[in-house]
């Protein structure tokens, strides 16, 4: 789902850095007031965890597999703010240390996967928890993948509209909404099923260990 460098226009990623900066400040607000010997290592551990979860291959019906996003798991267990911060740090480290993802795509990737994904997971879980907890976890994980995918697809799909030459030739990502939305969302509907199952397994594991859910 990560957008690489070179496909987003400056009209997109420069304002996105502004929005992301505000979101990072908001997410760090609670933490900065208590950056002590508990929060600094915890944030580092969650960052490494978010990275590690991204390495886990999630089985997809049909015999193939994709990698876990893990953002729903982080949001349900540690809260949307910590999940967003951790995921953003992972994306920063991936782009600066390992050359994966991209520095221009960083704010969009962080907002789409870290913020939209975490928020939608937390909101779905809160809304459905009273009905059935298993359903709430599954819906939260599936929705986090779909909403993140939707955000990424919308940003990619808007590129031909905001950045094109005088003759209408695109300057960055070339496909509009009619192509990019199904191309991103249909595979992610399946990836979301695998992510939901994985999140449910881990949720039950975490409950057995009496970890305090968010």
């Amino acid at each position: 789902m990560h957008i690489p460098d070179g496909f987003l226009s400056p009209q997109t990623y420069l304002p996105a850095y502004g929005v992301a900066a505000a979101a990072w400040l908001w997410a760090a607000k609670g933490l900065r007031q208590r950056l002590d010997e508990q929060t600094v290592p915890k944030l580092a551990a969650m960052t490494a965890l978010a990275y590690g979860l991204g390495l886990i291959m999630v089985p997809i019906p049909g015999g193939t597999s994709g990698h876990a996003l893990g953002i729903a798991m982080l949001a349900l267990l540690f809260g949307a703010r910590l999940a967003f911060l951790s995921y953003s740090l992972v994306l920063l480290l991936q782009s600066l240390l390992f050359g994966a993802g991209g520095i221009t795509a960083l704010p969009i990737n962080a907002l789409a996967m870290g913020l939209v994904g975490a928020w939608s997971a937390a909101a779905a879980f809160r809304a459905l928890r009273g009905v059935n907890e298993t359903l709430a976890v599954v819906a939260a994980a599936w929705l986090s993948v779909m909403m993140s995918g939707l955000a990424v697809a919308l940003v990619l799909g808007v590129q031909p509209l905001v950045a094109h030459g005088a003759d209408g030739t695109p300057l960055f990502f070339p496909f509009g909404f009619s192509i990019v939305l199904p191309a991103v969302l249909l595979p992610h509907a399946l990836i979301g099923v695998g992510e939901a199952l994985l999140t449910l397994f881990v949720w039950r594991f975490a409950r057995k260990r009496n970890w305090c859910p968010a």
């Binding site: 508990q38 290592p41 915890k42 580092a44 551990a45 969650m46 490494a48 965890l49 590690g52 979860l53 886990i56 291959m57 999630v58 089985p59 597999s65 876990a68 893990g70 798991m73 267990l77 695998g194 199952l197 994985l198 397994f201 881990v202 594991f205 975490a206 260990r209 970890w211």
Partner: peptide, 21 residues
Amino acid sequence: RGRHAAAQAGHLLDKSVYGAA
């Protein structure tokens, strides 16, 4: 494969929590 992925994720979660401490 689902159980295997969950076991990996559970182990990472355990290690993160205790590693932070």
